[in-house]
Amino acid sequence: MTKEMNLQKIEKKIQMACRTSKRKATDIKLIAVTKTIDALEMEELYQLGLRDFGENRTDSFLAKTAFLAAKKDITWHFIGTLQTRKVKDILTKIDYLHSLDRLSLAKEIEKRATTKIKCFLEINISGEEKKHGFTKEAAIQFVKTFSFQHIEIVGLMAMAPFTQDQKELHQVFRDLKQVQLEIEALKLPHVPCHELSMGMTNDYPIAIEEGATSIRIGRALVND
């Protein structure tokens, strides 16, 4: 299938999930995860109307932002684990960081930033040892003691377990939604926490049904 056909298929699934959950498809941001394609193929996605692009490695991110620098309407999302020493390299080029997963990273961003950086707090909602992120309890403690002036916590991000068990996936995403609502209700300065970045190729319709506002799609979009 072509990328255009892939995109049409994804958009239909988004619409179906939105009908099921009585949501609007326009409320869902589709982030094209482009780690497996080059900048020329990204330009192809751009021509199809996509404007949100996500990368998970700093070297690829820097190369692609440079190649597509003339496309001023692109929104750049960094979605991978960010090494503290790499913060200075990408901070002025990202629109959203989806992987604020530890206090030391927040401190480095605060040290380097000159403008407000929009971040998703990464939550290890499934409790898997190999996953990064705050526990629910640690996340709530983090925001309650939040003192950063250059960081805005716009929402939460998580990756679900790799499973075909739809009941389990619904529960994981539902749990993340509950944490988001708890933090949002605190009405803390610099922590609006209105958004949810969750759902990838294997599970994005379920994530939408459970409240995702951003979905991160790679394989389903770019594979021929």
Rank of each mutant, 00 (worst) to 15 (best):
G127F: 07
K13I: 02
V191L: 08
F78Q: 03
A139H: 01
K167N: 13
L121P: 02
K130M: 11
Q178T: 14
I123P: 01
S214G: 01
Q171L: 10
Q47G: 07
Q180W: 03
F134R: 00
K72G: 02
L103W: 08
K144R: 15
K93P: 01
Q47W: 01
L100D: 07
S60N: 14
I74F: 04
L100T: 08
S147N: 15
K86P: 01
H150F: 14
A212S: 15
S21G: 11
I74G: 06
R57L: 03
K3L: 10
C18S: 09
Q171N: 13
F53V: 10
L91T: 09
T115S: 15
I125V: 14
K107H: 10
I90P: 04
T92Q: 12
I217V: 15
K167E: 14
K93Y: 09
M42V: 14
T163E: 12
R174Y: 10
F148M: 09
I10C: 06
S21V: 07
T81I: 05
S21A: 15
A63W: 00
I37V: 13
T81W: 00
K130V: 07
D175L: 08
A160D: 07
M1I: 02
A207V: 04
F146D: 04
I215N: 06
G155E: 02
I217E: 03
K35M: 09
F61C: 10
K3Y: 11
Q47T: 12
K12T: 13
K13H: 12
F146M: 05
H150I: 01
C193F: 05
T201E: 07
F78K: 03
D95Y: 04
N223Q: 11
A69V: 04
E209G: 08
L176Y: 01
Q141W: 01
D165A: 08
L181Y: 01
V179T: 11
S21P: 07
P189N: 07
A158P: 00
Y46V: 06
Q164T: 14
I90C: 02
T84D: 04
F173M: 07
E55F: 09
T65Q: 14
E122D: 08
A158V: 00
T81E: 12
N202F: 05
T163S: 15
P189H: 09
D89H: 14
E43F: 11
L196V: 06
L7E: 05
K118T: 09
T114W: 01
D89N: 15
Q15N: 13
T145I: 01
Q171M: 07
F134Q: 00
L40H: 11
T36G: 01
V179D: 00
T36P: 00
I153M: 08
K177L: 06
K111E: 12
G49P: 10
A39H: 13
